[in-house]
Computed example of a mutant assay.
Amino acid sequence: MTKKSANHTQSLKIPKIILLTSKLISFISPKLITLFAAKLFTTPIKHKIPKRELEMDRNSLQKLVSIPAIGKEVVVYEYGKSEKKVLLVHGWSGRGTQLFKIADELLKVGYSTLSFDAPAHGKSPGKDTIMVDFIATILEIEKQFGPFEAAIGHSLGGMSVLNAIKKGLKVNYAVVIGSGDIVEDIIDDFVAKLELKPTVSTLLRLHFEKKYGEKMNSYSAFLAAKETAIPVLVIHDNNDPEVPVKAGIHIHKYLKNGELLLTDGLGHRKILGNSKVIEKTVQFIQNK
């Protein structure tokens, strides 16, 4: 593997200052480290929009939309003009323009797309968020801008799409790319990356369950997949360093009407711009 391609399959590293701070707090108090880890877990990184996404950004009709269920606001992007609409949902620390290459191809075959900066992402206000907010945003956007022919989600966006379908989102097709699966695994992995003891993972899960009044694992993607009857295309890279390929394989196993596409060497983000992935995605939505 070349140095350039290796970058696409390399996991994001947590800054040393955060690792050191986490370890210090963990020695002081279990309650404090739980609150500190929860803050980190729910705070996305806001990246500057890259040049490659500027065209979609310039050519989109953008508006700030209220999501009453969570008391937050999001920036929505309407791209193209067609009654055949596809909803695009980015992942953690992503943006509404991140799936621009998929959006461009959909426009070419007669669709328009609608995407959004999730709470605390991109141009949307706020500093913290969680998957519950993503799902509530999807359901509210369907009310205001739907119906949608299909929904496409990347990473956390894929998990959110499946959970939104479980909660009533009506689409004919769904595509999930590099989607996470079991919530407990995601929390365990996060705690491991912080180089903290596994007991912190349990404390963090219990913290969220107390806050939201629900079992965190009830949001696992495979459980939503179990209840999903529509055709769903699951795309995952064998070398994804952020979300292991076993997540995609497991989700597919539980779908009633699923299709699985595994790729090699595309990692977690480059996969969104791969021509074969985009072609398969568009054809799937067109039922070709």
Rank of each mutant, 00 (worst) to 15 (best):
A174T: 05
D189W: 09
E105Q: 15
P68A: 01
K215F: 10
P231W: 05
T228D: 04
K253E: 14
L20I: 13
L87M: 07
K72F: 00
N7I: 09
L223F: 14
L196N: 04
G96K: 02
T113W: 06
A103V: 04
D237W: 00
E279Y: 10
P241L: 06
K48D: 14
K226E: 15
S220E: 09
G96H: 04
D237E: 07
I28M: 13
R95A: 08
L223C: 09
R52T: 11
K215S: 13
A136Y: 01
T97L: 07
Y254T: 08
Q10M: 11
I45A: 10
P30Y: 05
I152C: 04
V183W: 08
L139M: 03
S66H: 12
D240W: 04
D128A: 10
E259N: 13
T199R: 15
G126Y: 01
I18G: 07
E209R: 10
K16W: 14
A192R: 15
F41S: 02
H121Q: 04
K108E: 14
H250I: 10
N287Y: 10
K256A: 10
G110F: 05
L35N: 15
L107W: 08
H154I: 03
G158W: 00
K197W: 10
S11D: 12
K23L: 10
I14Q: 08
K16N: 15
Q283C: 11
Q62A: 11
I182V: 15
P68E: 03
D264L: 12
G258E: 03
L61D: 12
D57L: 13
I138E: 03
K63S: 14
